[in-house]
C-alpha cells in the first residue's frame, strides 16, 4: 500500500491516471520503468515525479476486436512473445532480455520513440493505430507519422497512450534485426514485413531518425515477391529510401547495406511461406 506520495501516483484506472497526471504536470509517466529508470540515472533525464501505470489493470491484456488485435499499452512485452501475429511475436521475442521483457511494455516501446526500438517496425509495417486518451476522450491515430523525431511523438501532454491496435495479419508477417552479438542487443538495423494477398509492406528500424517505410520499397518488394523484379532492384530501392545513422556501432554504409540484405531475406521468407 502506498502510504503517502506527493510526487508519486499509483493509479488503478485510466481516469485516475489522467487526474494524477493533471495534478503533477512535471511528473513523467512510467510503465515498466525499463526505459525511464536508466534515463534518469544515466542520461540526465529530469523529472519531478512519477505517474505509474503498473496498477492500471485496464491497460494490460490483448483482445481481438473486428479483425484487430487491441493491445493494452501496459501489456508487458513478455506477453506478446506468444501473440497471434508472427511479426509482433518475433519482434517481442528479441527485445532486450527475458528479465527486461517482463517489465517493458508495448506502450513504453512506442512512446520512447527511438528509431531502434524493437516493436516499432512491426507496428509500422502492420498498419497499427494508437488509442490516445485524455480527459476529453479518446482519439485514434495511425502509428505512421506518430513518431516525429528520435524520442518525440504526437502524444499531447495531457494524453496517455492507452492501446495499440494492430490488424491481425492474414498473410505472412515477420521481423528480423541485426546486432553485434547474438542476444541482448540494440538493433543496428531492423526490418518488419507483412505480406497480404501478394502485397508486401516493409518497415525499417534505425534506418533514419524515425521508424521508416516507403511506397517505392513496398512496390519493389511486391515485384520481387511476384518474381517480377530482382533482389538488386529491391536493394536499390531500400538504399534510396533509407537515411541511416552513422555512429560507433556501425557506419551508415553498413546499415544501408544490411537493410537491403535483410529486406531481401524477409521477402524470400515470404515467398517460402507462400510456396
Amino acid at each position: 500500500m502506498l502510504l503517502a506520495a506527493p510526487c508519486f501516483a499509483l493509479p488503478e484506472t485510466v481516469g485516475e491516471a489522467l487526474t494524477a497526471l493533471a495534478d503533477r504536470p512535471d511528473a513523467i509517466v512510467v510503465a515498466g520503468g525499463t526505459e525511464v529508470m536508466p534515463d534518469l540515472l544515466w542520461r540526465n533525464r529530469r523529472a519531478a515525479g512519477f505517474v505509474s501505470l503498473r496498477r492500471v489493470g485496464a491497460l494490460r491484456g490483448t483482445t481481438t476486436v473486428g479483425g484487430e488485435l487491441v493491445i493494452g499499452a501496459g501489456t508487458p512485452v513478455a506477453a506478446l512473445t506468444g501473440a497471434p501475429d508472427a511479426g509482433l511475436r518475433a519482434a517481442a521475442s528479441s527485445l532486450g532480455t527475458p528479465l527486461v521483457r517482463t517489465e517493458a511494455t508495448i506502450g513504453g516501446n512506442v512512446v520512447s520513440a527511438l528509431p531502434y526500438r524493437n516493436l516499432l517496425p512491426t507496428l509500422l509495417a502492420g498498419g497499427a493505430t494508437l488509442e490516445l486518451t485524455s480527459a476529453t476522450g479518446t482519439r485514434v491515430v495511425p502509428f505512421d507519422g506518430f513518431v516525429t523525431a528520435p524520442g518525440r511523438t504526437r502524444l499531447a501532454e495531457d494524453e496517455l497512450l492507452t492501446a495499440v491496435r494492430l490488424p491481425v495479419p492474414t498473410g505472412f508477417a515477420d521481423y528480423a534485426k541485426v546486432g553485434r552479438r547474438n542476444a541482448q542487443f540494440v538493433a543496428t538495423v531492423s526490418v518488419a514485413i507483412t505480406c497480404r494477398d501478394g502485397a508486401v509492406r516493409l518497415a525499417f528500424g534505425n534506418a533514419g531518425p524515425t521508424p521508416l517505410r516507403a511506397d517505392a520499397v513496398d512496390t519493389a518488394a511486391t515485384a520481387l515477391f511476384a518474381h517480377r523484379a530482382t533482389a538488386e532492384d529491391l536493394r536499390a530501392a531500400v538504399a534510396a529510401a533509407v537515411d541511416p545513422p552513422e555512429d560507433t556501432i556501425a557506419s551508415a554504409a553498413y546499415r544501408r547495406h544490411a537493410l537491403g540484405v535483410l529486406t531481401v531475406r524477409l521477402v524470400t521468407r515470404a515467398q517460402g511461406a507462400a510456396a
Binding site: 500500500m1 502506498l2 512510467v30 515498466g32 520503468g33 512519477f50 494490460r60 527486461v100
Partner: peptide, 20 residues
C-alpha cells in the same frame, strides 16, 4: 500487483510501484 509474480531486474523497477 500487475499480474503473476515474475522475475525482473530490480534496478529497472521504480521502487514505489512495488507498494504493497
Amino acid at each position: 500487483g500487475d499480474g503473476a509474480p515474475h522475475v525482473l531486474c530490480a534496478c529497472l523497477v521504480p521502487a514505489a510501484t512495488a507498494a504493497g
